[in-house]
């Protein structure tokens, strides 16, 4: 057991008060600042989950790179997937400022201890899914990430600003692909409808449980790690997306979607929370496959990391030899 004496207790209370004041004053918390252990853990959990989502998210889309319907679509998709890898890197690096290592994070992902967005545990069955993901999944991510540009942890906020700048292309290319399909042949339009119907609900689940059910929400909101509640962001996404569905000329994926004049928002049906829980807890259609692929890719890349370490060791040896020669 750790024994803390009275002076240390007082010093910690003082630090805590300073920390809380910074949060209250809308100041960012920066690496090296004192922070409560629970804050550090909470930010690590959220940021690493975000980073893992970027990385695992490459798989469903990557599935279509070799089968994209044209060279243009292939080049676009390659660029998008490349961006996701970059976003994962921004986020992993920013998370490392909290004192957790890259390999610890990867270990937590592969063991299932850390989560990633449940949406990526669904398969991409047709080309239209790629369009629907760009439009809806990136669209939902943008709504969330815009609010996170104001998160209280400085490196996270700055990573969000950088990422948001690059996201708009992702959503627009997806919508453009969906527009082409929904204004194409009846079969293409049906394909777009089918993708919308399948991707819609998991996209709404991306915002997490209802505010009343969310395990981490209240503390995260109090510390301004999260700035807006799950339900608020979900509603925002629904409100902005319904008119986009209308422009595509597709049927609503939820028969309960209806404009509510009084609320000034669209009403919508209830999410299947049982499905959400199952997918989060590992029983989604692709959970096993996603982690298996991640492990295999990580293992396949080991020779590159080995080469880097070996090169580094050679440089160190050279330096030692030089110093020995000078000394001799």
């Amino acid at each position: 057991m750790q024994v803390i004496n009275k002076d240390e207790q007082l010093a910690m209370a003082e630090e805590l008060a300073k920390f809380e004041q910074k949060i209250a004053d809308e100041q960012k918390i920066e690496p090296g600042d004192w922070m409560p252990e629970a804050y550090r853990k909470n930010v690590i959990r959220q940021m690493s989950q975000h980073a893992h989502s970027e990385i695992i998210g490459m798989q469903p889309e990557g599935n279509w790179i070799t089968r994209a319907p044209s060279l243009r679509r292939k080049a676009i998709l390659l660029s998008k997937v490349q961006d996701e890898a970059g976003h994962g890197l921004y986020l992993y690096s920013s998370t490392e400022t909290l004192g957790i290592s890259r390999s610890q994070m990867i270990e937590a992902l592969q063991s299932g201890e850390a989560k990633y967005a449940q949406i990526f545990n669904y398969p991409t069955l047709t080309w239209a899914d790629v369009g629907a993901i760009g439009w809806l999944v990136d669209g939902a991510a943008i709504v969330n990430q815009i609010s996170l540009q104001r998160t209280s942890y400085g490196p996270y906020a700055r990573a969000m600003v950088r990422i948001c700048k690059e996201e708009s292309f992702h959503q627009r290319q997806g919508y453009e692909a969906m527009y082409a399909l929904s204004h194409g042949t009846p079969v293409q339009k049906q394909m777009a409808q089918d993708a919308l119907d399948r991707v819609w609900w998991p996209s709404l689940m991306m915002f997490g449980p209802h505010d009343s059910e969310s395990a981490h929400s209240s503390q995260s909101m109090a510390w301004k790690i999260k700035r807006m509640s799950n339900d608020y962001l979900r509603q925002k996404f629904i409100d902005q997306t319904v008119p986009q569905i209308e422009v595509l000329g597709l049927a609503m994926p939820d028969p309960d979607i209806k404009w509510n004049e009084e609320r000034g928002h669209y009403d919508s049906g209830e999410i299947n929370w049982q499905e959400f829980k199952e997918v989060i807890n590992g029983s989604g259609p692709c959970n096993f496959q996603r982690i298996k692929h991640h492990k295999a890719a990580h293992q396949d890349g080991e020779w590159v990391r080995e080469a880097v370490r070996s090169y580094k060791q050679k440089q160190v040896n050279k330096e030692i030899n030089k110093q020995n020669e000078t000394a001799a």
């Binding site: 243009r72 080049a75 676009i76 660029s79 708009s168 292309f169 627009r172 290319q173 919508y175 453009e176």
Partner: peptide, 8 residues
């Protein structure tokens, strides 16, 4: 196509 403005 890496820019948002590319998409009409």
């Amino acid at each position: 196509y890496r820019h948002a403005t590319h998409y009409v």
